[in-house]
Write a protein that binds this DNA or RNA. Sequence first.
DNA 1: CATTATAATTAGTCTTGCCTAAGTATTTAC
DNA 2: GTAAATACTTAGGCAAGACTAATTATAATG
Lengths: 252, 252
Amino acid sequence: MTASETLTASLEDYMEAIFHIIAEKHAVKPRDIARRLKVSYASVTGALRSLADKKMINYTPYDLITLTETGEAAAKDVVRRHEVLKDFFVEVLGVRDADADNAACRMEHSIPKVLVDRFVKFVEFVETCPRGGDKWIKGFMYQCDNKGPQENCEKCISTCLDEVRGHMRRGGAKTMETSKLKDLKPGQKCKVLKVRGRSEANRRVLEMGVTPGSVIELERVAPLGDPIDIKVKGYHLSLRKDEAEGIDVEII
Amino acid sequence: MTASETLTASLEDYMEAIFHIIAEKHAVKPRDIARRLKVSYASVTGALRSLADKKMINYTPYDLITLTETGEAAAKDVVRRHEVLKDFFVEVLGVRDADADNAACRMEHSIPKVLVDRFVKFVEFVETCPRGGDKWIKGFMYQCDNKGPQENCEKCISTCLDEVRGHMRRGGAKTMETSKLKDLKPGQKCKVLKVRGRSEANRRVLEMGVTPGSVIELERVAPLGDPIDIKVKGYHLSLRKDEAEGIDVEII
DNA sequence: CATTATAATTAGTCTTGCCTAAGTATTTAC
DNA sequence: GTAAATACTTAGGCAAGACTAATTATAATG
Ligand SMILES: [Mn+2]
Ligand SMILES: [Mn+2]
Ligand SMILES: [Mn+2]
Ligand SMILES: [Mn+2]
């Protein structure tokens, strides 16, 4: 029982780095990790040994590095915390991408689970609530740039009035134009309306958090439309064509 | 030049503890710090030496501990980061007080200045913007409790309509009932409308961040109405009666 | 294939920050 | 005013996590 089951902030960063390198290069060597984290080779070797002790990676000297089952889960969890924080900083607080990324990677290690979930829900809420949304965040940005209470408050409110009226005329949040997930372009966001079918594929999709009401963002589509990379509740997810087929969405 | 000018997370926590103990007991002894941070006496002694090296505290063995000029500034800065984060977690995300406090005290050490400022502005925005505010946050809480998109969306929107109409009828954000700061009850929040006069006292107040548009919360009033403790932009501030006199506010 | 260049590991050092145990100072109690 | 209790410091140890320097393994090159 020499190994503890929780990772330190430093080791989490190593896991994160390994995860990302695997995602883009398939093979991981100490060199890549050292470059990415800006530490010496010696430090990497030390960290790798420590991670191997904790059963997070498969590591024998001079060999390729892979993640274990538990290691992959741990890495994904760190990445998620990073993404969730960054998302909030960029989408809601309007912080510059690089700053957000930096801050997220430092704060990701100390944020508890309850808060991660709240952040996810909050971003989702801001993006879907007819009282919040795009215009509302713009109002906040305006206030940030001009320090002091916003001058365009009236304009903002009348816009809100129009939008809210339109929303109610359409019958609340119930009726809206539905699209297929595959019709989205990379970068676009949508709200899930329905996940049709009850196949094994659909079950997996639902388990992953693609449930009615959740907001997902299309990250990229492979040349032939398969697979489709999306982000949902801070998780990256790769869907096969048939899995994406049965998902009805509303483009935001 | 044996001492560095930046504090580690651990030392920041010691500074925070010292600051709070001073605020409530006037004198600081290692015992108090050890109890508060749940560390051994030996650890406290070590930290105190380190902080003295860095010119943050005045410390000689067996003597009372006080903050230096720079130490007080550093301590206030940590406390502010803590408060700002906690405020957001409680007021906007609706996290339980103890959880929020815990998370804040772990994350406070890694949040950069730009983000702290953004958090302050965002909470202020949510609390003052007629499109945001109380009802809007309640909508979020509802969504949190019931996981899934909110059912009371229509009700929320019609409330919004009413509020926004009322707001416009009153002539936008311009005209509203003004009160004096001293009329507030502890716990109440208000938005600063005007800081009258240009005396030395007023200058100090403005410098501290009590500027038109900012949101302040009354923490407590001493028996004779002097001094008045308030919280503004994450800072705690103690105002004398004459300083509070010239501040016009709108109760939120 | 031998040589050189690069990558990786090992060995050893340093700092931070915690601990326990032991010794010293101060306070409290009688 | 001495004895006992409590508070505080010192000494020494340990783990994490970085580093440099030296050594060894692998890859590249002619
Ligand atoms: Mn990260
Ligand atoms: Mn990180
Ligand atoms: Mn704190
Ligand atoms: Mn802290």
